[in-house]
Amino acid sequence: MQDVREALVDAALTRWPEYRWRESDLHRGAFHLVLTAPGGPSLRATLGRCGRERSRREANTLLTLESARLALTIPRVLDGPHWAESPRTWITSLTTVPGSPTDDLTTCSVPRLSAYAETLNTLRAASSTCGNSLPPVRAWCGGDQWPDIVQRDLIPRLEAPVGAVAAERVESLLETESHAVPMLCHGDFGPHNILWSEGKVASVIDFDHACIGDPALDIAPLISFHGASSVTSLGSPEEIQRAMLHRATLPLQVAAAAHLAGLGQLRDHALANFARRLAERTLFDPAGKTPS
């Protein structure tokens, strides 16, 4: 990791020499590396294949949300994406936004629920201003090809009974979400992507999965952190039911995205996660709750 950090620092200094990149912090996500300069911007670097396509899609999403005057503080694209020969990846410069991540990702207090609801309402209110400029639902893991990727490339890697359930979960989700009224969705709306200040939401980050889709999609990650019973105030009973169906397929979405990016270890980890949740009967909800 140190060699990668040094290569990213050198790439950042070449393009944006006015910032103190040598003092920067490096954070690793599932599909990106993020380098943050003290008092300066952040640099995002893609991991795996298809970096150009992914970086452009992610940058265009932020530009669309900025032009829509979204009533939230989110990162803005400063420059890029650009190819960095070393460490052979695509890099984009983004503004650093205020706030800090919470140390407690699982507690779901009344103030936190209220903050979630307010932020989700802000997103949904901006649905009409984004038009058709955002990527399609699940573009990050294959878009409308996602079911085929699961069937062709992922299910053969699962034991037969698990693979059959995976196919059933995908089919059920697609049928159920077709009845939802599409709205602006963050796509990975969890406490890990919300920055806080003095108990309030200061910023929202990581809009890589943003789309116009089923609003229950944004409740699904919250179920993973807090459980379905804790987030019932964030949607209608029908939305909570759909959110559990979304949650059941999240490992299959991560696995598909990792497969497309050539990140085999992450793909296999996600598939093992799906199989484990199935065995533990926690596909839909960490506490074992199931949709009716």
Rank of each mutant, 00 (worst) to 15 (best):
G131S: 00
E198T: 13
V162I: 09
S229A: 15
W16S: 09
H82S: 00
C211L: 07
P17N: 08
I74F: 01
F189W: 11
A202T: 10
C50W: 02
S178D: 07
G163E: 01
A71M: 08
W146H: 07
A164W: 08
G39V: 15
S42L: 04
L217K: 10
L62D: 10
E53C: 02
E66T: 13
A125I: 11
V137A: 10
S42A: 09
P136W: 01
L184C: 11
S230K: 11
T119H: 10
P147K: 03
P136A: 08
V4P: 10
T64I: 13
D285N: 06
H32M: 00
P111W: 13
V204E: 03
C211Y: 03
T64D: 00
L283P: 02
H246K: 04
C108F: 11
V77P: 00
P251F: 11
A272P: 00
R157I: 12
P135F: 09
E85G: 08
Q241E: 12
R277E: 15
C130F: 05
A12P: 15
N121W: 14
A12K: 04
P156D: 09
L65Q: 06
R44A: 04
N132A: 07
H32L: 01
E171A: 12
L8R: 04
H186M: 12
P98V: 15
A166C: 10
V34W: 04
V170C: 09
H269G: 08
P156L: 13
C50R: 01
I240G: 07
A258H: 02
A139D: 01
P156N: 07
